[in-house]
Amino acid sequence: MGAEDLPPDRANRIADAVEDVERNVTSRRGFQHVSRDAYTDPDEQDRRDVIERKFEKLTEATLEQYRLYTGKSRSSQSTPRARR
């Protein structure tokens, strides 16, 4: 299925979601300054949790874009779990 085959409402939903992903990526740039030592510092568990959750949400949003475009449902795919 190509982009020209999408109904307008579906294409708009995908475009909106892509914009959300773009906003999320842009807002995550602020975490680029965090060094590995600062990230893995045992006293900074809260910071690590926030960063991981934000990237988890970004990944989920990206996967949702894939599902919207391909028409696949969440139940028809296995989503890999993050390694810890």
Rank of each mutant, 00 (worst) to 15 (best):
R84V: 08
E60I: 10
M1V: 07
T62D: 02
A15I: 13
G71N: 01
T79Q: 05
G30H: 07
A61Q: 10
R23L: 06
N12Y: 10
K72H: 12
A11K: 10
D16L: 15
M1L: 07
A17K: 05
Q77N: 06
Q65G: 12
R29G: 01
L68Q: 03
V18W: 10
A38S: 14
V25E: 09
S27G: 06
R13F: 12
D37E: 08
M1A: 04
E19H: 15
S76D: 11
Q77F: 07
A15P: 04
A17G: 08
V21I: 15
E60H: 08
P7H: 15
R36Q: 10
T79A: 10
D16A: 15
A11Q: 08
V25A: 07
R83G: 03
R13L: 15
A17L: 11
V18Y: 08
Q65S: 08
Y66F: 13
V21K: 00
R28L: 13
R48Q: 02
L63S: 00
Y69W: 12
T62N: 01
Q32W: 07
D20A: 14
E52S: 02
E19F: 13
A17T: 06
I14P: 03
D43Q: 15
F31I: 04
D20P: 00
H33F: 10
R29W: 06
R74Y: 10
L68W: 12
P7V: 14
D46I: 14
H33I: 13
I14L: 14
R28I: 09
E44C: 05
R47E: 03
I51L: 02
S75W: 05
E44R: 12
Q32M: 10
K57H: 13
E22S: 15
E52H: 02
G30F: 03
K57G: 06
A15G: 09
L6C: 08
D9N: 14
D5F: 05
D20G: 09
D16Y: 12
V18A: 11
T62L: 04
S76K: 04
G30V: 11
D5G: 02
R29A: 04
R84L: 06
P7T: 15
F31Y: 13
F31V: 02
Q65I: 07
I51N: 00
S76F: 10
T70L: 03
Q32I: 15
D43K: 09
S35E: 00
K72R: 11
H33C: 04
E64W: 09
R53A: 12
R48V: 05
N24W: 13
V18S: 10
R84D: 01
P42F: 09
R48D: 02
R81I: 11
R29D: 06
K72S: 12
G71W: 07
D20H: 05
T59R: 14
P8M: 11
L68E: 02
R48N: 01
R10E: 07
T59K: 09
A3H: 13
N12V: 12
L68G: 04
I14C: 04
R48H: 06
R28Y: 08
N12T: 15
R48S: 00
Q45H: 03
D46H: 06
E4W: 14
Q77E: 13
F55R: 08
Q32D: 02
Q77Y: 13
D49R: 11
Q32N: 13
K54I: 05
E52K: 01
L58T: 10
N12L: 15
L58W: 07
S27E: 11
N24A: 15
R67E: 01
S27Q: 05
D20Q: 08
S27I: 08
E64D: 11
G71R: 06
